[in-house]
Amino acid sequence: MKYAYFLSCINESMTKEVDRALNLWKKDLGIELVNLERGTCCGGSNLDYVSPDHFLAVNGRNLALAEQLGLDLVTSCSTCLLTLRRARHLLDTSAEKRELVNALLADEGLRYGGTSDVKHLLWVLTEDYGLERLAAKVTTPLRGVRFAPFYGCHILRPSALLGRDDPAAPSSLERLVEALGASLVEYGSRNKCCGFHTLLVAERQSLAMTGNALEEAVRAGADYIVTPCPLCHTALDAYQDKALDGRDVSRNIPVLHLSQMIGLALGYSGKELGLDRHMIAA
């Protein structure tokens, strides 16, 4: 199984451990990733406000780079996922836009044709690899560990562009947790917003969202939150002390990246997986 790999800006800097963990175990599953070295930032759901044209051109370019490799594109950042899928949808539904973008890409020898799909790492595991196969690879079942799955937004909504889990009743993350031998807690915030995208412009309100999710997960008795998105991770982990400030919550709760949870079940140590890099000790 070979994919073009869209690292995402945050996984290259603040949350390097997502990438470190994935790179540890990918070979165990026979997954090969080819870095999109020349790929750019997707614009983080911000670029299109400044200029829809630039948004479409740079993401058309990112998609064309994957096509040049003849591979589907995989990312472990939900906002990159949605942004790239949005660009793909807009290009696929307008021959005119496709032509204009391709005119901009021609000098570089690139062409957008719509042949590479854009997938989240979670989908690669649940759909392409298969949870039964993954369960068979588990060397250290996470028995007795209670996870609160936190999906965040951009892997679920808008479902018209993502089309996997039902945003009101998602299940892929739960099925993955169970495949690794761990157990689940139920809580209401699993498909809600972490607040990350407005942390810099409406901090108090954003931290209230983060705090609600954290408080619910703690009250539900979870040992860990697990999330498929490094932006959600940053809100839930790095901002946790701020988000829980003034709340009557008995303890902190460590937050794992999807790739770290899998790494633990495949026998890698917390140190190898970069758990020591988290703000809340895991």
Binding site: M14, N46, S51
Partner: peptide
């Protein structure tokens, strides 16, 4: 506005570096 300056930073960084320059993102926002 902070929101508009935040969005503008993505536009600038993709042109200048290709990647988001997170270290100065709060300052620019």
């Amino acid at each position: 506005s902070e929101g508009a300056r935040h969005a503008r930073a993505f536009y600038d960084d993709i042109r200048d570096l290709g990647r988001l320059k997170e270290v100065t993102l709060p300052l620019r926002t």
